[in-house]
């Protein structure tokens, strides 16, 4: 496995005949930030769902830090160190922020981060006792991030975290993500907002129709023929 923290090999996933993932490959090293981009419907979110165990792949393999997690149930994967956030946050709405974190802390494995630290790093300490359904959209996104963080993941998939945020909120979150990556967590940032992505990383993987079509620096990606065609609908 050549020391990759996460290896996705040849994953195929179909839904009622529609091939959402067509033998996609992805490798992520420890502590690196990788962007995952592609036009709508290219399979980004499906890939995140397959990696986090919400769907099982029809074919292919997923290895986390050397361990084959392809067929593991979601909660087991979380214990092994992989987590993700949601495009539309799914907080535990009737529970307070503190309880949301408590849950992940209790169940997310033995080497968890202290809860106060998680709350601080996602700037939620002030809203500890607020019920999750009363949070603003940006706060809910941070709560989702905090939940994932609390399980001390080695790899974290961040699904369109930037969507709907104001420029100042965006730069706050970018700083948060960079700090997280600095602690050794590998980040896969699924994004539409290329500007936001640029502030985080230079390595990017472009997906189209369920397969990677470009891997390399963001600056090169925007000049690549295939990428342009795919985004502008050739």
């Amino acid at each position: 496995m050549a020391g990759y923290m996460l290896e996705v090999e040849g994953v195929v996933k179909s839904f009622d005949g529609f091939k959402a993932l067509n033998g996609v490959n992805l490798s992520v090293e420890k502590g690196e930030i990788v962007g995952l981009v592609g036009p709508n419907g290219c399979g980004k979110t499906t890939l995140v769902n397959v990696v986090s165990g919400i769907y099982r792949p029809d074919m292919g393999k997923i290895c986390l830090d050397g361990k084959d997690i392809t067929h593991m149930p979601t909660h087991k994967r979380v214990l092994h160190g992989i987590n993700r956030t949601f495009q539309v946050p799914k907080p535990l709405s009737d529970m307070t922020v503190e309880e949301n974190i408590d849950l992940a802390w209790h169940f997310g494995g033995k080497d968890n981060l202290a809860r106060s630290s998680v709350l601080e790093r996602t700037n939620l300490s002030e809203t500890k006792y607020k019920v999750a359904s009363m949070l603003t959209a940006a706060q809910q996104k941070r709560l989702d991030l905090a939940r994932a963080l609390a399980t001390n993941p080695k790899v974290l998939f961040v699904d369109e975290l930037g969507a709907g945020l104001s420029p100042s909120e965006l730069s706050d979150i970018a700083t948060m993500l960079k700090e997280i990556a600095d602690t050794g967590v590998a980040l896969v940032v699924v994004e539409h907002l290329l500007g936001f992505l640029e502030s985080l990383t230079s390595r990017v993987v472009v997906l189209d129709a369920g397969k990677e079509i470009f891997e390399g620096r963001l600056k090169e990606a925007v000049k690549d023929e295939r990428v342009i065609e795919v985004f502008l609908g050739g």
Partner: peptide
């Protein structure tokens, strides 16, 4: 108890609960 916390979480959103490590 922890069980109660987990159950409330499952009632709210089983997927989020499992992503917090809860074996639903």
């Amino acid at each position: 108890s922890r069980l109660g916390l987990a159950l409330r979480a499952i009632r709210n959103d089983p997927v989020s609960a499992s992503l917090s490590g809860v074996n639903v």
